[in-house]
Design a protein around this nucleic acid. Structure first.
Lengths: 387, 387
DNA sequence: TTGAAAGCGGTACCAA
DNA sequence: TTGGTACCGCTTTCAA
């Protein structure tokens, strides 16, 4: 019924092996033969049977991309960039192109594992994990084990914007040099110390980290508020026990420390989700906790937008009354809320780098792609503190 | 090296066939045998070889989801909903679950076709096309032909928020009954008229339309502005030759006509993209064309946000000076720009319905899932017209 | 209820 | 440069 390699071979008067070689372009084939085969492919409208070739080749051209929230542009931008790097930019033959499989985990470690199993089952060529990861030791161990197995099976693993899921207990000063996300996984000398529950996952050509400078971004953001004169700054952190939450918080604290100021008191530091609702509720709670607040830094842009909404509903104006800042790279956040200052994490660049690693084009020996610097985007830096 | 079915069979002391049956649950298997097999699966950490089973079964558990812009929450919400319906909600076995492959076309008809080829090659179980489609006859024909082939090959085709890519020349009044997107593809009596370049694609159990009421939404939006007293309304339409652009424009015109008003003059009707930049530039052009403008309706929320930014930069306040409205369902748009009135298209519901169709759970005989109604969300309806 | 075995459609090694 | 041909790992009749 459907056209197969054999049909094409028959039509072109060659063997199946030759057709395969033409299609894959791995082996030399006479020009005349090649064109004859290609013509037969055209005429028969032949489409390769992916499963069959994946079975024979023991690897598919699928690349899994795990994101925490597909409805958040933050991940949409990264996922799109990864896909652009791999996928069909309009290549006519459409043969040999990788296909990105974007999987929405909702931030759930269980789903993350389930998707990895699914991808392993598909014999994916690579998996790209994006965004924050959980800090829970149990999940980290389980994740490490699974990634370990994938890598052992020849699957390229790319960690994009998150550290290696290994024991970080002995890590150095978090505020040291802004490499919060970056280096964590890289340092791993011999690593034959403790057997660790689930095998040791180490960075290398097969397991690569593509860091985002969450800590540096947070430091820049809080630094910006401090430079404007703000001294009573509320901080809406992301979910507790998440890597980005921790790194951004570290940057925030570093900025305060660098200015010789005391750390944000507990009642001005709230944990929430990465969603808008959380920003809305969080802002109201912060204002209640300290009506004299002059600025709020939010876990990401989506949360910052929720903060803006809350301020408006409370009759406050943005940014005259309270300054609000967010992280990430939401492309329109800065334009909508005047005075909304955002730190742009280079999402597209990071996503593209991840894509290149997944493709095998860019594979650093030490397993770490140098991080792009965070950029501070201040749309309206005139917001004065009230106090 | 990797664990195979045979390994599991050997360990469980049964045949490969039995293991297969246990895993797929299609055939009766003795309880004792089943548990023995499952234990072996556990112990060996066996993971099914997807390509192999896809090859043997002649169909994979991949479902393709094509979106025009993965960085736009509009599509993120739909794609996420589709995936939630198909995917692992945390099912431990992870066997037999469908995997959504989200493909970002960027609105390019060529990429759309390329991705469809890629999905055909993977022997996808279903493909879901979301969002607007091009009106170009050539591309429509090519798309129809490809979908035709997919459907003929047993692939379920779901058109979500777009009409069937067939000749619509003889269609009825666009403003008739708000079914703009909905019915277009459904009506197709015998259809054995003109052979049409590429075969006739007809709606049915295999090719299903899950409509979004773009026309009704647009009518509600413009109707809302009219009810507020606005009479000089600019309209920033989407890209020309796109189905949603046309349907929304039809609704806009219908609202004006229903109020006994003349249609929007050419200089107040601009076509652009669905991106923020387009809204920004479009707003400036509209204000230049008619400084007495009191309201602007935008192609979607993202464009509306760009309009807000432009107004702010021009020293106008939103909504006191100019009202701005958008379509879609961008979850935070309404909260950020006070007075931003949006029409909520039921994206989640639509995505879920599409997912159920793709799964085969919900398959209407006539190939059309009843549309969810558009909902008008007025955050601040006090904006008065200037004039 | 279970087993044996014939494919499914390519890939890639070995010869020619 | 090309052809022949063992697999790849699972599904699914057909028998037992």
């Amino acid at each position: 019924m459907t056209v197969t390699l054999a049909d094409v071979a028959a039509r072109a008067g060659v063997s199946a092996a030759t057709v395969s070689r033409v299609l894959n372009g791995n082996y030399p084939v006479a020009t005349a033969t090649r064109s004859r085969v290609l013509r037969a492919v055209e005429e028969l409208e032949y489409v390769v049977n992916g499963p069959a070739s994946s079975l024979a080749a023991a690897s598919s051209d699928l690349v899994g991309v795990l994101v925490n929230d597909i409805a958040d542009p933050f991940f949409g931008i990264i996922a799109g960039a990864v896909q652009d790097t791999l996928g069909p930019v309009t290549s006519v033959p459409a043969q040999g192109r990788k296909l990105a499989v974007i999987c929405n985990t909702g931030g759930s470690p269980e789903r993350e594992l389930t998707y990895l199993t699914l991808l392993q089952r598909q014999r994916a060529a690579a998996v790209v994990l994006t965004g924050s990861s959980t800090d829970d030791p149990g999940h980290r161990a389980a994740l490490a084990a699974r990634l370990q197995r994938l890598a052992a099976g020849g699957v390229r693993v790319v960690l994009c914007g998150r550290p290696l899921p290994v024991d970080e207990s002995g890590a150095g000063e978090p505020a040291a040099d802004g490499c919060g996300t970056a280096a964590e996984g890289a340092r791993e000398p011999g690593a034959e110390g403790r057997p660790a529950a689930g095998g040791t996952l180490t960075a290398g050509p097969r397991v690569v980290t593509v860091p985002l400078d969450n800590e540096g971004g947070a430091r820049a953001l809080t630094g910006h508020l401090l430079a404007l004169g703000h001294r009573r700054i509320g901080y809406l952190a992301g979910p507790d026990h998440r890597s980005t939450t921790r790194h951004r918080l570290a940057g925030h604290r570093a900025a305060l420390a660098a200015a010789g100021l005391p750390p944000t008191p507990d009642h001005l530091l709230l944990h929430g989700t990465f969603h808008r609702d959380s920003g809305y509720a969080g802002a109201l709670r912060l204002l209640e906790a300290d009506p004299g607040l002059t600025a709020i830094a939010a876990a990401n842009d989506t949360v910052a937008l929720g903060v803006c909404a809350a301020l408006r509903d409370r009759g406050l104006r943005v940014p005259q009354d309270v300054s609000v800042t967010g992280f990430d790279d939401l492309p329109f956040a800065a334009d909508v809320a005047p005075g909304l200052t955002t730190v742009r994490l280079p999402l597209r660049e990071t996503g593209q780098a991840a894509g290149r690693v997944a493709l095998g084009t860019e594979v650093p020996e030490d397993g770490v792609v140098p991080p792009d610097p965070a950029r501070l985007v201040a749309r309206d830096s005139t917001a004065p503190p009230r106090g």
